[in-house]
């Protein structure tokens, strides 16, 4: 949204259009929305609590 604003999309209509066309790298994956607003890339990770700490376990395959 901030990037879209910087590019001059400073009203709701143009920012919405900009978001719908967005494609870019986030921190954990690339982001692009489908026509319903769902992310095109999905990953699901399992974490477990060990000695009171939440630690990454493994990625879970999704279909």
């Amino acid at each position: 949204m901030l990037q879209g604003i910087l590019e001059g999309n400073t009203d709701r209509e143009s920012l919405l259009e900009w978001i719908n066309d967005y494609e870019g790298e986030g921190i954990t994956k690339s982001i692009k929305f489908d026509e319903n607003g769902e992310p095109e890339n999905i990953s699901v990770w399992a974490y477990k609590v060990e000695n009171g700490e939440i630690v990454a376990d493994q990625e879970i395959e999704t279909d």
């Binding site: 790298e25 921190i27 954990t28 994956k29 982001i31 990953s43 699901v44 990770w45 399992a46 974490y47």
Partner: peptide
């Protein structure tokens, strides 16, 4: 204390740039 607790979740992304 230790809990045998597992968490399944999606790693979040952000709109970067």
């Amino acid at each position: 204390p230790l809990l045998a607790m597992a968490l399944a979740l999606t790693a979040c992304g952000t709109s970067g740039g």
